[in-house]
Design a protein around this nucleic acid. Structure first.
Length: 842
DNA sequence: TCCTGAGGTC
């Protein structure tokens, strides 16, 4: 079949439309250029053959010819000339025409000049016509002329430059699309660009999908998937890391364990523990058996949760996964974090047993971790015993092991022993790192041996090898070998070191922080150290500033402490919860409660979450409160604390409220011994009492005088009643009038059952308090209510248990009336009491 | 993996 084609560049499908923005185009849709858009022409309009000229003819006018009547070599010459002259669009059209004509193309193909085509393609790249470049590649590829055969060194260089240019402009989408096209032609993407550079830009621009698409073009895509997820995670961008993970999962045809390991590790890095568990459980629900690395990762990420970690471990058998040494080391780490010495010791014994059976080989991690567990538990002797174990097992302690051994002694307050171990480490040829030196310094500071800490620090600074001139170093070495060490030994003795080796000691921020702690209350010394830090090129961190605040505040300088907090923020270090807590502590210690509460409000404004220490610091401010306002303020903090999910420490607050409430009867009665002795009632949730007090302080008591004492002990009930009376008293002194009787609910019981002992105790104690101690008129009132009402009341609290209950056969027998036990204090006697109290005061 | 800062009735 004859095909006659009109070649009109301006209407062709492969012509690049002008575009002002170079890097703003999509190429992929051009991979399959439509041929149907090239119109056929009737044979009567055949043009003269255009290849008679040595120069390529202009194509501005329509050219028409019948390729079947032309020699393939002549066609090739024509095409070659077009390519050589940079008319590559036209060249491509000739190629396309030949392809479409049905003529024998092999001769034409063999006569094409790859060097000319390459030249033309290079020009496209030089001019930034990337889309045209891609279009031509498409055409050549369709024709069976793979672009890879055309490209030689120089064109590849240009292509590389072009890719780098796009990358430099951060046009990741465009680059990835081009790369995908090139990959389709078989180009080696790794040779065009450094994959890590592309991934970096994807991470910067938060384009996880582009990163994965790029990774798909590389031969080791799976590895690059993981690198990508890791890079996102390192930047703290968990969302993108997860997107990349999901996308990578879809683009993998098999389950890639390394991918799961990576995302689980990244979840750990980003503190998304629940997410890591979800991913792991998803894997299990697909009936996939994870490998030991995935299992170790999930355990490691969740090592702070001992029970979860152990559950995963216990499940290993069901899964048929064999734990390795790392699995056991992670279990030890979990015990270490949870402070479970007993469990750690059991595991240690078990792995030792496994080792003796030849199933495992304990490594330096195992020993270091168990040493740390023992060190934290102040079991220094056992820690030293582990050192012997490891030496006899032929495992050499590393810096971390030595550090843990030293901190074992340091934690037990044994500075001498710690220093002795430090020397032993040097003799053993183990180079201490900064952290290790810091542990030793910290040991001195903890034992209040401040001078010793400073002397050690100075000696290490002097011994720094890299600070010495070369010949000085040589002198030292030759002195050491010839035994001329007198001067040095003397100075070493002075610093408590019998062996002073040149240390590659480099102080860190932590070093200076420890030394600042050693300044006690000497603010100027601490400040000088902070300045020295700066000259050493170290930046003070949040800890540094907090220490400075503490030192300044310790001399009662509240203004100074507050000022440092501001300076800290100005210096670009955002104060954290500890910095705020430190300033709050300073205020509380100096009884500046208003300032303390104001700082508390300020930190909340900055969205810094107070923690248990902050709350306890504030609530510890149990100075005598004169009014319900201050107690209220305290209770607000208390309730805030409970809302934040902290188990409240009610001791101080309970005492505070007690003192405040007892103020009601202070002048009337001194007989309170019985109550204070029974205060330590830890059986019941103490918070209930405080909730009741808070509730009564916060609602408008003048409206309805009702007190609910259900579930409280008699001491707690006493406090609640007194708290309400205290509020009533304060309101009365401000002019409020009592218009109602006071109703006190004691409990709900069935009509013909005897109230329990506790309830009777409360009733007696409260009646005694109101009648005998305060002289109020008290009436006992039983209010009968239907049993289904009681069930309704119960169901509001225990919906699930109630439904179970409803389903049982016992239901009909329970339909008995119940009684609400109440006490009533008459309005008249309350008024008399208030009047008597106020006249007493006058 | 190891170091440094704030709180403390039992």
């Amino acid at each position: 079949m004859r095909v006659i084609v009109i070649l009109v560049p301006s209407s062709s499908s492969i012509v690049t439309p002008p575009n002002p923005s170079r890097h703003n185009h999509h190429y992929t849709h051009l991979l399959k250029a439509s041929k149907s858009r090239i119109p056929n022409l009737s044979p009567s309009n055949l043009p003269p053959p255009p290849w008679s000229s040595s120069r390529s003819p202009p194509l501005s006018t329509a050219l028409r010819w019948d390729p079947t009547k032309t020699h393939p070599r002549s066609l090739a010459d024509f095409a070659n000339n077009l390519a050589r002259d940079g008319k590559l669009v036209d060249f491509a059209m000739v190629v396309e025409t030949v392809a479409d004509s049905g003529v024998e193309a092999s001769q034409f193909k063999s006569a094409l000049r790859a060097d000319f085509v390459e030249k033309g393609l290079s020009e496209f790249l030089r001019d930034g016509k990337v889309q045209s470049f891609v279009n031509v590649l498409n055409k050549l590829d369709e024709f069976g002329f793979p672009p890879l055969e055309i490209f030689t060194g120089s064109a590849m260089d240009l292509l590389r430059k072009e890719c780098r240019g796009i990358l430099k402009c951060r046009e990741v989408d465009e680059l990835v699309e081009l790369v995908e096209v090139l990959a389709g032609f078989g180009f080696s993407i790794k040779e065009l660009m450094k994959p890590s550079d592309v991934i970096k830009v994807c991470v910067q621009k938060r384009k996880p999908k582009m990163a994965i698409r790029y990774a798909c073009t590389l031969p080791h895509a799976h590895m690059v998937f993981c690198d990508t997820i890791y890079e996102f995670g390192k930047k703290g961008d968990l969302e993108s890391a997860l997107t990349a993970f999901e996308f990578a999962k879809k683009n993998s045809n098999s389950i890639n364990m390394y991918l799961y390991r990576t995302i689980i590790d990244i979840c750990g890095r980003c503190h998304a523990y629940q997410k890591s568990r979800q991913i792991y459980e998803d894997l299990l629900s697909q009936k996939v058996t994870p490998n030991v690395y995935v299992v170790n990762s999930i355990m490691n990420v969740n090592a702070h949760d001992l029970s979860y970690t152990f559950n995963v471990y216990r499940n290993l058998q069901n899964l048929g996964v064999e734990p390795d040494m790392a699995s056991y080391n992670i279990l030890l780490k979990a015990c270490c974090l949870a402070g479970r010495v007993d469990w750690a010791q059991d595991i240690y014994k078990e792995v030792q047993h496994l080792e003796s059976s030849g199933l495992l080989k304990l490594d330096v991690f195992t020993y270091s971790t168990i040493v740390k567990v023992l060190a934290d538990a102040k079991l220094w002797q056992m820690a030293l015993k582990v050192k012997d174990d490891m030496l006899s097992a032929g495992v050499t302690p590393n810096t971390v092991t030595w550090s843990s051994l030293i901190s074992a002694c340091a934690n037990a307050g044994l500075v001498e022993k710690a220093i002795q171990l430090f020397e032993e480490m040097l003799l053993d040829g183990c180079e201490p790192n900064s952290q290790c030196c810091n542990i030793l310094l910290h040991a001195c500071v903890e034992a209040s041996q401040y001078d010793r800490a400073f002397r050690l620090f100075e000696s290490w600074k002097r011994n720094r090898v890299q600070d010495m001139p070369e010949d000085d170093k040589e002198n030292r070495a030759s002195n050491a070998s010839s035994g001329i060490t007198t001067a040095r030994s003397r100075s070493s003795q002075l610093y408590g070191l019998n062996f002073a080796k040149e240390l590659s000691f480099m102080p860190t921020v932590a070093t200076y922080n420890i030394l600042m702690k050693a300044c006690g209350s000497d603010y100027y010394h601490a400040k000088a150290l902070m300045d020295e830090m700066n000259t050493m090129g170290l930046s003070p961190n949040q800890i540094t500033w907090s220490i400075l605040i503490d030192i300044c505040g310790s001399s009662g300088n509240i203004e100074g402490a507050l000022k440092i907090l501001r300076t800290m923020r100005e210096a670009g270090i955002e104060p954290d919860v500890v910095a705020y807590t430190t300033v709050i502590k300073v205020c509380v210690e100096n009884k500046y409660m208003k300032q303390a509460f104001s700082l508390f409000a300020e930190m909340k404004r900055y969205q810094i979450q107070p923690n248990l220490v902050t709350y306890n610091t504030l609530l510890r401010a149990r100075s005598r409160y004169g009014s319900s306002l201050e107690v209220k303020q305290c209770l607000v903090v208390y309730q805030d604390m409970r809302r934040a999910g902290y188990r409240s420490n009610d001791f101080y607050l309970k005492q505070l409220i007690e003192e405040w409430c007892e103020g009601v009867i202070q002048c009337d009665n001194q007989n309170q011994e019985e109550f204070s002795s029974s205060m330590t009632d830890t059986e019941r949730p103490q918070s209930l009492l405080l909730e009741k007090v808070a509730e009564h302080l916060q609602k408008n008591i003048a409206e309805s005088l009702t007190i609910d004492l259900q579930g409280l002990t008699k001491v707690e009930a006493r406090i609640v009643v007194l708290a309400v009376l205290q509020v009533v008293k304060e309101k009365y002194s401000r002019g409020h009038i009592i218009s109602d009787d006071m109703l006190i609910t004691l409990g709900i019981g069935k009509v013909d059952t005897i109230p329990d002992e506790l309830e009777l105790g409360v009733k007696d104690a409260i009646t005694k308090l109101l009648q005998d101690e305060l002289g109020l008129e008290v009436l006992s009132k039983g209010l009968e209510i239907a049993s289904n009402t009681q069930m309704y009341l119960e169901s509001t609290n225990h919906s699930t248990s109630n439904s179970e209950y409803l389903g049982s056969n016992e239901l009909p027998t329970e339909r008995r009336p119940v009684v609400m036990q109440r006490l009533m204090v008459t309005r008249k006697s309350l008024r008399q009491w208030l009047y008597k109290r106020s006249s007493l005061r006058r």
